[in-house]
C-alpha cells in the first residue's frame, strides 16, 4: 500500500487526530498524529488486516529545537510495506502513551528515549534510565544540554 493510501485510511478512521503526511524529503513518509491518539492508531495499524504493521523497526526521540517528537518506523512482514508515525510534543513535560503493549519491542527503545530526552511514556511497564547511570542528571541528547564538569569526582 502506498503511504498516501495508508494516510487516507487513518484519516478516515481517526479524523482530526491524524494531522498531516510528511512525504516530500522523508523516506519513509511520516503520518503525524496527535500524541494522545498514538496508542489507538498503533493498535489499528497492527491489527487491521490490510495494514498489519506487525514489526516496529525503530522508535526514536527527536529534538527539533522548538519541540520534541517521537518517530516510529513500522514495517509489515505480511504486505511488505513501511510507514512512519510521528507525534509532536511540547518542550515542557513531553509525554505520550506507551505502545509496548502493542509492540513489546518498544520497551527498551522507550526507555532509551526517556533516558536521553526525558520524554515520558504513560502506562509503560518499566520506565527507568537504561544507558546512563541511575543518578545521572540531565538528558544528554537534548539540544540545550550542557556537559557536566564531573561525575562522582571524575572529570567528564
Amino acid at each position: 500500500m502506498e503511504a498516501q493510501a495508508i494516510f487516507d485510511t487513518l484519516k478516515g478512521k481517526f479524523g482530526d487526530a491524524v494531522v498531516e503526511l510528511q512525504g516530500e524529503g522523508f523516506s519513509p513518509a511520516f503520518a503525524v498524529v496527535a500524541p494522545a491518539a498514538v496508542k489507538e492508531v498503533s493498535r489499528f495499524l497492527k491489527e487491521d488486516p490490510d495494514l498489519s504493521f506487525d514489526s516496529l523497526m525503530c522508535l526514536s526521540g527527536v529534538d527539533y529545537k522548538d519541540k520534541f517528537a517521537v518517530a516510529y518506523h513500522l514495517h509489515s512482514l505480511k504486505h511488505r510495506h513501511a510507514i512512519g508515525l510521528k507525534a509532536m510534543l511540547p518542550r515542557e513535560n513531553p509525554s505520550l502513551p506507551t505502545v509496548d503493549d502493542v509492540w513489546p519491542a518498544a520497551n527498551f527503545q522507550e526507555r532509551e528515549a526517556f533516558d536521553l530526552f526525558g520524554i515520558g511514556f504513560e502506562g509503560s511497564k518499566d520506565l527507568r534510565r537504561i544507558l546512563l547511570p541511575e543518578d545521572w542528571e540531565g538528558h544528554p541528547l537534548r539540544k540545550d544540554y550542557k556537559y557536566p564538569d564531573s561525575y562522582h569526582g571524575i572529570k567528564v
Binding site: 546512563l132 545521572w136 544528554p140 544540554y145 557536566p148 571524575i154 572529570k155 567528564v156
Partner: peptide
Amino acid sequence: SYCVVKGVDLL
C-alpha cells in the same frame, strides 16, 4: 563524548 572516562589512569 559526555560519559567516557578520559583515561583509566584517572581511576
